[in-house]
């Protein structure tokens, strides 16, 4: 068993455990913390794949910015424990066998048909200059379009989250 495989299994166990914990916890803040653990472990997997820049962006943007936004909203709305609701019986009757068959099928297909040759550590020329060459040359138009997307998202968030003004002309 190589060192690379041991690292993969360790990070993968943290990922899988965090994902299951996200489902098991009833309080949203606990779910948010386990999601942060999943994202940090995924950054480790990206490092194993030789994608150092993606790993750094994963920690800074995902675990940093986006999850801070989630935790902030959970604190702002004072979200409490999730209420218990009765699940439907049909979901248990058909959902559980369906999930089991689906996952077994998917695993067998992936194991049989995807290449068995190993992915080498640091195999990718993931140097930031190469990525910048791709991002600012080959993908320049999508890059510029995403800036418009972010601008629209900012304006939408401001409009949606601002308090509705009292109707004009109404005096009370």
């Amino acid at each position: 068993m190589s060192f690379h495989l041991i690292l993969f299994l360790a990070f993968g166990a943290v990922c899988a455990g965090g994902a299951v914990n996200l489902l098991a916890q009833r309080h949203p803040i606990n779910s948010a913390l386990s999601l942060i653990a999943v994202m940090a472990a995924l950054a480790g997997e990206y490092l194993l794949l030789g994608a150092e820049f993606v790993a750094a962006v994963q920690v800074i943007v995902y675990a940093g910015a986006i999850m801070v936004l989630f935790v902030f909203v959970i604190m702002l709305l004072n979200a409490g424990e999730e209420e218990e609701t009765k699940g439907s019986r049909v979901a248990i009757l058909f959902g559980v066998p369906g999930i089991l068959t689906g996952s077994v099928l998917m695993a067998s297909v992936v194991l049989r048909h995807s290449g068995t040759e190993a992915v080498a550590i640091g195999a990718l020329p993931g140097h930031p200059t190469d990525i910048a060459q791709l991002l600012f040359h080959d993908f320049l138009l999508p890059f510029e379009v995403t800036s418009v997307l972010i601008l629209i998202a900012i304006m939408g968030a401001v409009v949606l989250a601002s308090k509705p003004e009292p109707a004009a002309g109404k005096v009370d």
Binding site: S2, H4, L5, F8, G12, C15, A16, E45, L48, L49, S103, M106, A107, V110, L111, S114, G115, T116, E117, A118, V119, A120, I121
Partner: peptide, 12 residues
């Protein structure tokens, strides 16, 4: 060395 399928299984 880790096979590609392991990464795909974790992702799935």
């Amino acid at each position: 060395m880790v096979p590609l399928s392991y990464y795909l299984l974790l992702s799935g």
